Amino acid sequence: DVVINNAGRSIRRPIDESYDRFHDFTRTIDVNYLGPVRLLLTLLPGMRERGRGHIVNISTWGVRMPPAPRWSAYGASKGAFDIWLRTVATEIAADGVTTTSIYMPLVHTRMSAPTDFSGIPGLTADEAANLVCHAVVTRPIEISPWWTGAVQAWTDLRRGAAQRFMERSAGRRSGE
């Protein structure tokens, strides 16, 4: 049994434009976190009983980076499922069920198109699909861009510096 979670509702909006849009947060959490949890709560008993199965979660490299301005709903929802699945993985491994978290870099798709990522390197949908196929066949614990480990370590060691960097980045983007 293989489950591929590719849930993705992306939303990029400044917090000051979100005060009266709580529904955006609930919709994003429903799709990116609660939907996959509900599905796996239904499928996991059978996978564990059979003693086999593999779950592939398509996450985002953003989960491993300092929090980025304007991505609060998306980042929180993807982070929530990432933590949930990694926690569950510790409980189901003894039953023969494995997991892979893919911390996908930018993939140029219709979902990413509304945010202007032109000129920023990213994967094609076919390249992203190849990563997913690799995860299904080889079953690594994670697949992540090579540079995310170093950035995550820097963020963990220097949280204040990382946050100030992102704060300055947000100010430049908003014209401050």
Rank of each mutant, 00 (worst) to 15 (best):
T99Y: 01
A93K: 10
E17P: 06
V2F: 07
R9A: 11
R12A: 06
S72I: 07
L41C: 04
E167I: 09
T26Y: 03
M111G: 08
A68I: 08
G51E: 03
H23S: 11
N32F: 09
Q163L: 15
A68T: 03
D156E: 08
A125N: 11
N57K: 01
G51C: 04
V2S: 06
T26I: 10
D16S: 09
N5H: 03
A113D: 13
Q163F: 10
Q163E: 14
T90E: 07
G53Y: 02
A129K: 15
V136S: 00
T115Q: 12
H108S: 11
N6K: 13
H23N: 07
D24H: 01
P105H: 00
R139V: 03
T87G: 14
V97P: 06
G46T: 10
L123I: 06
C133N: 02
A135K: 09
R70A: 06
W61T: 05
E49S: 01
D126L: 05
A153P: 02
A73V: 00
L106T: 11
W154R: 14
S10T: 14
A7L: 08
S77P: 14
A153G: 06
S18A: 15
P14R: 03
H108P: 12
P69Y: 12
G62K: 05
I15W: 01
K78H: 13
R38V: 14
T87A: 15
L43A: 15
I29S: 02
Y33P: 00
K78E: 14
R158T: 08
V3W: 01
Y33V: 00
M65Q: 11
I58R: 11
I102P: 10
N5L: 07
A128C: 01
L43H: 15
G51P: 01
D116E: 13
R48F: 04
T98Y: 00
L44S: 02
R172P: 09
I92S: 03
D82Y: 09
V88Q: 11
D20C: 13
G149P: 03
A150L: 02
L39R: 12
I55T: 00
I58T: 14
S144W: 05
W146Y: 12
